[in-house]
């Protein structure tokens, strides 16, 4: 056997680190927004689009995308939707409680391909969480990017995430923010309709770099709009989600054909995955 390293010289990839919850906000009826710091005081160093395995000993681990920008080094944000055993237990935690994290893991947004370009982010539902990492990054380093457009779609107004951010983004000069809901309530005065109804509102250059993150059904409709604008598919980046256990390219659950979402992704160039039959 030829191996570069030996088992007793290598850290165990399943051994987590402890993080402390410094803020916990119930964002929607099912989603909780956590702000965390590593308990040892070290910063969490990551790239927008990367993921972390968030764990609670005795319950398990779940893969979650960073919801804050690495430019904000004080802490990092994760938003957890309560859907199962682990996420349900995590969502009961409050400020001062601790969790375990493994990461950063995976391949995030290729910032070098976005710098100096017009950037369009299209986020649907909980897809705003991992893209918020990129949105904050762009806003923090605004002069490194050209025009910045954000489309955000939610099912209902009460399911919108990051209300404080949205209030700020709505009037911001640094970005063009457009939002829609599938189903309005009496309080809603904005656009009603699926995400694609936002596209006629802005004129986008075919040179734009586009980033998409949303529910599985979302992608094919958004891609159709981007194709119509003439944005080449290698300039379209998709942030994909699959069932995931290990987060390190071993357990097999997140495979899309021969790709492992946890290590090859979760961010892919659309050109790299468009021919994968299991991707969309």
């Amino acid at each position: 056997m030829e191996h570069q390293c030996h088992w007793n010289e290598v850290a165990n990839i399943f051994l987590p680190r402890e993080a402390t919850i410094v803020q916990a906000v119930q964002a929607t009826p099912t989603e909780k927004h956590f702000t965390l710091k590593m308990s040892d005081g070290q910063p969490m160093e990551f790239e927008p689009g990367q993921i972390v395995e968030l764990g609670l000993l005795g319950y398990g681990e779940i893969p979650i995308g960073f919801a804050s920008s690495p430019t904000r080094t004080e802490s990092f944000d994760l938003v957890v939707r309560s859907v199962g055993r682990v996420s349900g237990a995590v969502c009961k935690l409050e400020e001062g409680d601790t969790v375990n994290v493994r990461g950063p893991l995976g391949h995030g947004f290729d910032l070098d391909k976005l710098r100096g370009r017009d950037v369009l982010v299209v986020a649907g539902g909980i897809g705003l969480c991992p893209t918020r990492s990129l949105i904050q990054y762009i806003l923090d380093r605004r002069d490194e990017f050209e025009r910045f457009v954000l489309f955000y779609g939610s099912r209902e107004p009460c399911l919108q995430l990051f209300g404080d951010d949205l209030a700020c983004w709505r009037g911001m000069q640094e970005m063009e923010y457009h939002e829609t809901v599938d189903n309005a309530d009496p309080s809603w005065t904005g656009n009603v309709g699926v995400i694609t109804t936002l596209f006629p509102k802005v004129q986008l250059s075919p040179e734009t770099r586009a980033v998409i993150c949303g529910p599985p059904i979302f992608y094919r409709f958004v891609i159709r709009e981007l194709d119509a604008i003439g944005i080449p598919r290698e300039n379209v980046f998709v942030d994909l989600e699959r069932r995931m256990k290990c987060g390190v390219g071993k357990c097999g659950h997140c495979q899309i054909n021969d790709k492992y979402v946890c290590v090859d992704g979760p961010v892919f160039s659309f050109a790299d995955v468009q021919d994968l039959e299991e991707a969309f």
Binding site: M1, H3, W7, N8, V10, N12, I13, V248, G249, K250
Partner: peptide
């Protein structure tokens, strides 16, 4: 088990 993220949990027993 050894490529990309080296998994000691397999490789420890293997080696």
């Amino acid at each position: 088990f050894s490529e990309r993220n080296y998994d000691v949990n397999y490789m420890g027993h293997r080696e």
